[in-house]
Each structure stands twice: as structure tokens, then as C-alpha cells.
């Protein structure tokens, strides 16, 4: 479970997050929607302990991480997988080394055991093990994201998955593949997931629970029906450009869930 209470964050004197409150129950997926620069990614960095908020509480799986030491955060991160924008694969390592990075660094597994686990993770995300020796810059954007998901899977046996704009800049086919990965992971492993995106149609395919952030504040927290019916001027404006596809997307989502 992820819970944020009264989170405030400022960088260089500029307020980034103001009084952020929300919770993602264990095993559920929630999507954070909002325009670029609204503070969505900052929330993920706070949950991962990369940034410390000015005030407020971060509770991960019932444990209050406010004021936790670096070592405590390191231990907490063992169960948190993060898919960064563009994948953030290590440029100087091959695909195989990227996926097996955590195992090499933090376990005493033999190279053979690591290879098996790396291969299994690659297959899990639908990639051919032949790409193991390729460098990240030889992969397409979609493949890089899938390798990043494989890296999180092989490494950590995550209980929580955080996705930062996982579909941004990808072609429609790659978007479908990534969304499939996110939803199947949620079904198979029952991980608690938080997905940051500004694309409402992708958001609807991933979950039925949404938070909307604008200028560092939570302006909406609810399900798709409530989102569609929201009278908040910003929500109305944000959903505006998607109106033509929105009705269809809501209908499809309803059918799938039904």
C-alpha cells in the first residue's frame, strides 16, 4: 500500500507539490493524470525516496518512511520497481547486464543462475533472448521500456511498481504492448501500481482509479465515472481534447471490467 499525507515539496524556493493526499490500496493500480510540469513525476520520486518532501508523511506498506535513513530507504526499495521515463537503462551495460544488474550487485547468485533469471524476465515481457548482448542504444523506444520492466521484474520481486510516463513517445503498437505488460503484471503478481501519464486514453486502459494533479495539487481522486462527471473546471478542460474518443474509451473500459 502507498499512502501520502499532507506532502509539500519545493525546489529552489519554487513550490512543486502542495498538500498532496492520496492512497493506493495493496494490489490496486492508480493512474496519476495531469499536464507536463504539474508535479506528477515528483510524486513518484518521493515514493521512491529519491526526494525528501519538506513536510508530510510517506507510508509504504504500512511503514512510515518519514525521516527514514538512506539504509532504510535502500531496504524499502528492494520491493519497489520503478520504470523511469525512456526506461533509464544503463548506457554502458548490455541488455542482459542491465536486467541482471541488481542480482549482480546484491546477491551471491552464480552467473548461470542470473542468466536463467534474466532470460525468464525477458520472456515475461515478450522479448527475444537474442537481444541480451545488445546495447540499449540499439533498441527501439518500446523495447527499452520493456527491458526496463524486465529489469524491475528480475531484480526485485516488486510489491510496488511505479511507472513514469511509460507510453510517452511510443508508436501505437508499442503502447499496446506496454499497457499489456502493466495490466498482466498487475493480474499475475498483484502488485500495487502507480502509473503517471498525461494520456487519458492510455490511462483508461490501465486502471479505473485516477488522481489528477494540477499545479502541484490533487484536484481529483476517484473512478472513471466520477472523472467523466467532474465539474472541476481544470478536469473539464483537461478532458476536453479527448472528448471525441472519451465516450468510446469509457464504454470499452466498462465492457472489459464488466
Amino acid at each position: 500500500m502507498i499512502q501520502l499525507e499532507n506532502i509539500y515539496l519545493s525546489l529552489g524556493g519554487r513550490p512543486i507539490l502542495k498538500n498532496i493526499n492520496f492512497a493506493v490500496p495493496r494490489g490496486e493500480t492508480k493512474v496519476i493524470l495531469g499536464p507536463s510540469g504539474s508535479g506528477k513525476s515528483s510524486i513518484l520520486k518521493i515514493i521512491l525516496g529519491l526526494w525528501r518532501p519538506d513536510s508530510g508523511r510517506v507510508i509504504i506498506d504500512g511503514r512510515d518512511m518519514t525521516g527514514a535513513s538512506n539504509e532504510e530507504w535502500d531496504r524499502a526499495r528492494y520491493h519497489i520497481g520503478m520504470i523511469f521515463q525512456e526506461g533509464a537503462l544503463f548506457d554502458s551495460l548490455t541488455v542482459g547486464e542491465n536486467i541482471g544488474y541488481w542480482l549482480f550487485e546484491h546477491t551471491k547468485m552464480s552467473e548461470e543462475e542470473i542468466e536463467v533469471r534474466v532470460g525468464r524476465a525477458l520472456v515475461e515481457v515478450g522479448l527475444d533472448p537474442e537481444i541480451l548482448d545488445r546495447m540499449p542504444d540499439e533498441l527501439s523506444g518500446g523495447m527499452r521500456r520493456r527491458v526496463a520492466i524486465a529489469r524491475a521484474l528480475a531484480s526485485l520481486e516488486p510489491k510496488i511498481m511505479l511507472y513514469d510516463e511509460p507510453t510517452t513517445g511510443l508508436d501505437p503498437l508499442a503502447v499496446e504492448t506496454i499497457i499489456d505488460q502493466i495490466t498482466s503484471l498487475q493480474k499475475r503478481k498483484e502488485v500495487t501500481s502507480l502509473v503517471v501519464t498525461h494520456d487519458i486514453s492510455d490511462a483508461l486502459k490501465v486502471s479505473n482509479r485516477f488522481i489528477m494533479i494540477a499545479e502541484g495539487e490533487v484536484i481529483f481522486d476517484g473512478n472513471s465515472e466520477e472523472l467523466r462527471g467532474s465539474n472541476h473546471p481544470f478536469v473539464f478542460r483537461f478532458l476536453g481534447p479527448f472528448k471525441s474518443t472519451l465516450a468510446h474509451a469509457f464504454a470499452s473500459f466498462g465492457e472489459e471490467k464488466g
Partner: peptide, 17 residues
């Protein structure tokens, strides 16, 4: 600097490095 700009430094920290 490039690693930082592409979130690789954050990824290292998230993997306990």
C-alpha cells in the same frame, strides 16, 4: 551529466547503488 539527465543516476539509487 547525461546519466543524470536520463534518470540513470536515479535508477542506480533505486537499485540500492
Amino acid at each position: 551529466g547525461s546519466m543524470k539527465a536520463s534518470n540513470q543516476i536515479d535508477a542506480l539509487i533505486s537499485f540500492g547503488t
